[in-house]
Design a protein around this nucleic acid. Structure first.
Lengths: 327, 327
DNA sequence: TTGTACGCGTTATCAT
DNA sequence: ATGATAACGCGTACAA
């Protein structure tokens, strides 16, 4: 009496033996490729299901030079905008058996370059790169890459991109403000981030020019605390400001905190607006006016565009939502 | 004159040829394994650096049956608590060249089981499973798994876990409330989520018993809207409620929205508290009392515990932060 | 319709 | 110290 195979089957060969067929047949069944009789298919499937066997991805990848994986390079994950875009990416991937592998850079430029290079050599389906600024170094890697790369939330001409109409967004806010106010402050961020640091500012300044105004400008970091300090500097320079535009909702929090501390009434004394329409914008009192960004859609669009394989550039529209903080 | 190799080197063999050594030597250099002369090492490194060559992970994985990847199974990513835990996981991984691959289930139980089974057969370093409820099906897969699995944000005895002292957290809130109030409402969630649906409720009820009170209970979903509706039902049953505990901060938003609509003053008329100490808790007016959960720490601890390989159970302490919403 | 045999790029064993 | 060579598990001509 021969001993039964009681161990967990580890390879396609084990399955073949258990089903009484060759491993090619097993492969054909599992990949729905090539001819295989109903009888064989059934035998194989029975064994596979009862054992919970799954193909070894490494071997599969090595053989086919293809991997059902999309690499996503992001600065960090605990950010509402980033996590929404990742959710969008996932939405576009449900039902496809495609995995998401993360490259979190923590804003480290070297890591951006490393991940770009690394993933571009691993035969992934494609790379979604949430860039801040695209340098010549980035460009070189992107050009050499054999796998498609798409830049998300940032404009570029060197490869496909899905971005937001940052300038238009900024113009909407600026117009709303400058229609009612003559001394408008802007709390921006450094130019390390092109979309937020440069484009949003450019939009505000374009409108200012149109209105014959001069914006009072202070730059800082992305944190609320940075917004708080920038606002302090703003008022030190121009005590009679009546409106402040913050480059992000988080920064707007800092602006608001400062104003509250000084007992300046938000809305009537000083109008405030932000970008991103974060979850908390509507929870603040008064509610914070902000520009809605279709982050989830952007993530979905990024996947579609990436898989389309031909270079495409999508600029998504944004929508300014006026609320009590702007009166 | 022989043509130079101008193509991008794709394999270790190309590098070997360019460096004038054998592929074994290249492998030894790239893995810092075995003896290799300074001269050879230098030749290889020069070629590697000038070409940007990187080892093929699929081949490496196939050969070594090991992968520098940690799989993270989560319900969704655009959630403050989840994304913070993922950030914590990443923190613990910086400098290790370990990748994070995501399995987003969208609360689909079948997908949980699929990912568990799938990753447990792919020779990943380990699996971090953000579970809601662990059924017999989950248990079966976890038991058979060859790779270490850790359950995050949920207690279990079947494998390592990192969780929060949910009952303790709930007791802290309940005590704070019942010290001042005699009719306390609780807006909970369904028992599909053990930690939140069952444990938090248990903590509240334990304190109620101690105080000889009866909590007015309403269950619903995780969204603010669910909290809103549950609160409406709560007041329909007990119009003279003076305190409401919400199972999450998001739910608390719904509670607050309802109270505001009814012109009930939060804090003085009805006290409110939540769980999670979300970013917006301090932004609300009045500020929302909530229990701080060390999500980032939990993520970091999960990685450490996972790699420790022996079964460990960590229960992280939480901290109730009283704020104006509780007076 | 099915099975045999080769190779994907790497690591590791074994001579040299 | 270095170089052949044999696996790792799979997909896929090609042969049968």
């Amino acid at each position: 009496m021969k001993a039964l195979e009681t161990d967990q089957p580890k390879t396609i060969i084990d399955i073949a033996r258990l089903a009484g067929v060759s491993k090619s047949t097993v492969s054909r069944v599992l990949n729905n490729k090539g001819y295989v009789s109903e009888k064989s298919r059934e035998k194989v499937l029975t064994v596979v299901e009862s054992t919970g066997f799954m193909l070894n991805e490494a071997a599969k990848t090595l053989k086919t030079q293809k991997q059902d994986t999309i690499a996503v390079i992001i600065p960090r994950i605990e950010s509402q905008s980033v996590s929404k875009m990742v959710q969008g990416i996932n939405n576009a991937l449900v039902g496809t058996n495609t995995n998401i592998v993360l490259g979190i850079t923590n804003l480290d430029r070297e890591k951006e370059l490393y991940y770009l290079q690394y993933f571009s050599q691993q035969a992934v389906q494609g790379i979604i790169f949430m860039a801040r600024t695209i340098s010549k170094d980035h460009e070189a890697i992107i050009h050499k890459s054999q796998v498609p790369i798409i830049v998300l939330a940032q404009k570029t001409t060197i490869t496909s991109s899905v971005s937001f109409d940052e300038v238009g967004a900024a113009k909407q806010v600026a117009q709303a403000m400058m229609n009612k106010h003559t001394t408008v402050g802007y709390v921006g961020v450094s130019t390390d981030d092109y979309a937020i640091g440069i484009e949003r500012l450019a939009g505000v300044q374009a409108v200012a020019k149109e209105y014959g105004q001069e914006v009072v400008l202070e730059l800082g970091g992305f944190k609320s605390q940075d917004g708080y300090e920038a606002t302090k500097r703003l008022f030190a320079r121009k005590p009679h400001l009546t409106a402040i535009i913050a480059a992000t909702d988080s920064i707007a929090i800092g602006v608001i905190t400062y104003l509250r501390e000084r007992n300046i009434t938000i809305g009537s004394d000083v109008a405030v607006a932000g970008f991103g329409d974060s979850q908390f914008a509507q929870l603040l009192q008064p509610q914070l006016a902000s520009v809605y960004y279709p982050y989830v859609d952007a993530g979905e669009q990024a996947v579609k565009t990436l898989l389309a394989k031909n270079e495409q550039h999508h600029v998504l529209a944004t929508q300014f939502i006026t609320r009590a903080s702007c009166e």
